[in-house]
Design a protein around this nucleic acid. Structure first.
Lengths: 199, 199
DNA sequence: ACACCACGCGAACGATCGTGCTATTCTCGC
DNA sequence: GCGAGAATAGCACGATCGTTCGCGTGGTGT
């Protein structure tokens, strides 16, 4: 890795952490330059524009998410074990030390939901992928006989996702010490319902 | 109402809408002045500082939320009907025309979760109130015999809230046309579980 | 109707934003 | 170890941020 790539990676490290805490609005070239010890223009040269930096931050976040949550889960056995691995991996993701502000995507989602552009488009695409992954995992669990045959797998993905969002909210905004327990309760209930024979 | 109060209210109207779409970061005195036809300094004079404006926006949002969601729900009969009214009122709240960016509080939550200060403190207090209201409503439903006796009412509030957050996410970011149906499904399931006799 | 004061405007402030240019320093292949 | 090209610094730019101040003007209470 050349010198340039090294510093670029170091910048992105700080940028991801900053974006996690303060969002893209709080991610400024000035503060980023201060934190990395670079000059503002020296830092800027690594990215053609602010938007390119933001895109790079998003890409770096996705890369980490895939490596830490997706990939390990796909090493777990198909069906319910994989779904449990996704749940656990995502819980750990929320508390990753390099994401001091919690899940990067939840923060970005609220900032970008009314701001059209390539950044928003990519985030939406990633989110759809992630939700589709959840739904597919549920379908596999049905095929494996872990979940009941008539399970609405898209609804399962929605409910799964809603637990994540609530955890983020209760943990990061309200600092609720019970947030994790509540999330686990909700997940256990969700799984129980998915296993049960249909009514 | 004096002239000053009138313009102040008009400013807050625009400010609430702007904060709903773009968050507090996108809420600038300049754009607000342009939209209201005031000069920047003239507008500024109505609020001692940007933070005071933000606090006023939050207060105005809470006022509307109470008037449109809380108050009507408390006119509904105690127990399950009231809980259903809370759910419906909140669904309507998300799509209020004066909140073009969706629920004001969800947007603010993500912006303030790592930004200490009086603004964050107040938002947290409001959110705790809202959650406590949900839990209390569930306890009443238990007392009325609508919900089973051993229901975990705090967990119920968590699950209820998670549906709201997921709806916001699927509706506003992903523009998912099924968002409302998914939310209703999840709510129906939540109620069913709360009614059922304990396992 | 008059006086007064709230109300709003205009100009300017220092800071910081993202972004160009030019120069200097450093790195790495030969 | 030298020369080419990448990497970084320095400086300046226009724009916009929140904020201050002084000055008019028009709404308001008597």
């Amino acid at each position: 890795m050349s010198k340039g790539d090294e510093t670029r990676a170091a910048i992105l490290d700080r940028a991801v952490a900053e974006a996690s805490r303060l969002g893209l609005a709080g991610l400024t070239l000035g503060s980023l330059a201060r934190q990395t010890g670079l000059s503002k223009s020296g830092l800027f040269a690594h990215f053609g524009s602010k938007e390119d930096l933001e895109l790079a931050v998003l890409a770096a976040g996705v890369e980490r998410f895939v490596a830490r949550v997706m990939a390990p889960a796909f090493k777990a056995p198909r069906g319910l074990p994989r779904i449990e691995a996704l749940f656990e991996g995502w819980l750990a993701w929320h508390r990753a030390p390099d994401l001091p502000g919690g899940c990067l995507f939840v923060g970005l989602a609220n900032e970008l939901d009314d701001r059209p552009g390539p950044l928003r488009d990519r985030l939406v695409a990633y989110q759809r992928d992630w939700i589709e992954t959840l739904a597919t995992a549920a379908r596999i669990a049905v095929a494996e006989g872990h979940f009941r045959a008539d399970l609405d797998c898209e609804q399962f993905a929605y409910d799964f996702y809603s637990i994540e969002l609530a955890y983020h909210h209760f943990h990061r905004l309200l600092r609720d010490p019970d947030a994790e327990r509540r999330a686990r309760n909700a997940f256990a209930e969700l799984v129980t319902l998915a296993r049960a024979a249909s009514a």
